[in-house]
């Protein structure tokens, strides 16, 4: 048993602070997606009033006003969690080593070690989701206050493009969650996944 343990990869220690932020992101992103699909259903982005709508089990808030209640409450939790995480990785200098690096890209190009390649792929993927989450907030804010923040909504050219961009962050996030779970297990085993949830 002891022998086996020394063989497996060391599990990176997660600080309690990061575990809390990670948990908050899981909860708030789930609420944002569920309530967002509720809002989507009032006028589908694709096909307008005659477009396909999401089934009720995928939505949160019972009706449009309810979905908006959840969406415009949880947006603060979601945005501030990301902001606090940003300040944290900046102050602790973690941004220098936690995200995808030139070495990772090198490993992907010429590396032969499959473990190293999986690790590099995973770092690339979870670095890539950060701009997507920021885009979700930016495009969301542009739709929430399109007149007052006209300089922001103007970046998205028109309303339909703005809605499409905001919506596309949903399938991208869902795909990311799936890949993140699988690659986390492949690079560090279930113990790596557990290390993010266990107190």
């Amino acid at each position: 048993m002891t022998k086996q343990r020394t063989k497996s990869l060391p599990i990176p220690p997660q600080t309690g602070f990061v575990k809390i932020l990670h948990g908050l992101i899981i909860i708030s992103l789930s609420i944002m997606i569920g309530s967002g699909l509720q809002i989507y259903n009032a006028t589908p982005v694709f096909g307008g009033k005659n477009g396909w709508t999401f089934p009720k089990w995928a939505t949160l808030g019972d009706w449009l006003a309810g979905g908006r209640n959840w969406h415009f409450t949880t947006m603060w939790v979601f945005a501030f969690t990301l902001l606090i995480y940003g300040i944290y990785i900046f102050l602790t200098q973690r941004w220098k080593r936690k995200f995808v690096s030139g070495q990772d890209l090198q490993a992907l190009k010429v590396g032969q070690n499959p473990k190293r390649r999986t690790y590099a792929w995973h770092r690339l993927v979870y670095t890539g989701i950060i701009p997507v989450l920021l885009l979700a907030i930016g495009s969301g804010l542009a739709m929430y206050k399109p007149a007052q923040l006209h300089w922001l909504s103007g970046l998205f050219i028109n309303w339909q493009i703005l809605r499409t961009v905001h919506f596309m962050t949903v399938p991208i996030s869902l795909l990311f969650i799936l890949v993140h779970i699988i690659m986390g297990i492949r690079s560090g085993g279930i113990r790596l996944t557990q290390s993010m949830f266990r107190p």
Binding site: W57, N69, I181
Partner: peptide, 28 residues
């Protein structure tokens, strides 16, 4: 089991009563 745990969060939220939805709105 872990995946089930995650999807149950969604299920619990989905079955939230209308009352809770109103309270959430009043909160923000």
């Amino acid at each position: 089991i872990q995946l089930l745990g995650m999807s149950s969060i969604g299920y619990l939220l989905g079955s939230c009563s209308n009352d809770l939805t109103t309270q959430v709105g009043n909160l923000s």
